[in-house]
Simulated assay, not measured.
Amino acid sequence: MSPPSRSSDEPRSAFGGSDEAHNFRLHDLVASRTLIDSSWYLIGRAEGILMERHQLTDDQAYAWLVRAAQELDKRLVEVAAHVARTSPPDEVVVDLRD
């Protein structure tokens, strides 16, 4: 059985698909990368806040975020966003040190 024929005027990508499909995949990759970058920025910001408020190391702050996310059954970035939104230090009432 032979592959379906393509019309000669349908554009092809260097990757074997149509240009439109390639552009769609490229857009998805860029959007994913932007989301990942913004998530890591937010997590880093929350780490910095915890480090400053509670004199934690970066590893301790990250471990606290991970533990809180697991205990609350939330995504890490959601917990980080909550920490970043809170401004008064006394709003974080959990003992952060092991």
Rank of each mutant, 00 (worst) to 15 (best):
M1S: 10
M1P: 03
S2T: 11
P3R: 02
P3Y: 10
P4H: 02
S5V: 12
R6L: 14
S7A: 06
E10R: 11
E10N: 04
P11E: 04
P11W: 02
P11T: 02
R12F: 08
R12S: 10
S13N: 00
S13G: 03
A14C: 07
A14Q: 06
G16H: 10
G17P: 00
S18D: 13
E20A: 14
E20T: 12
A21V: 04
A21Q: 12
H22D: 12
N23I: 04
N23C: 05
F24W: 03
F24I: 03
R25Y: 11
L26R: 06
L26Q: 12
L26A: 14
H27R: 11
H27Q: 12
D28P: 01
L29C: 09
L29E: 12
V30M: 10
V30Y: 07
V30D: 07
A31H: 02
S32P: 04
R33P: 00
T34K: 14
T34V: 13
T34C: 11
I36W: 04
D37N: 03
S38G: 10
S39G: 15
W40G: 01
Y41M: 14
Y41H: 15
L42M: 15
G44I: 03
A46P: 14
A46G: 13
A46E: 12
G48T: 09
G48F: 07
I49V: 15
M51A: 13
E52N: 14
H54R: 13
H54E: 15
T57H: 11
T57I: 07
Q60G: 09
Q60P: 09
A61K: 00
Y62S: 11
Y62K: 04
A63Y: 02
A63W: 01
V66A: 11
R67T: 13
A69S: 15
A69M: 08
D73I: 00
K74W: 12
K74R: 15
R75C: 06
V77S: 11
V77L: 06
V77M: 05
E78F: 02
V79L: 02
V79H: 01
A80W: 07
H82E: 10
V83H: 04
V83S: 08
A84I: 00
R85E: 15
T86D: 06
T86I: 09
T86G: 08
S87G: 05
P88W: 01
P89L: 05
P89G: 05
E91K: 06
E91R: 06
V92T: 07
V94Q: 08
D95P: 05
D95A: 06
D95N: 10
D95R: 04
D95M: 04
L96P: 04
L96T: 03
R97W: 02
D98M: 01
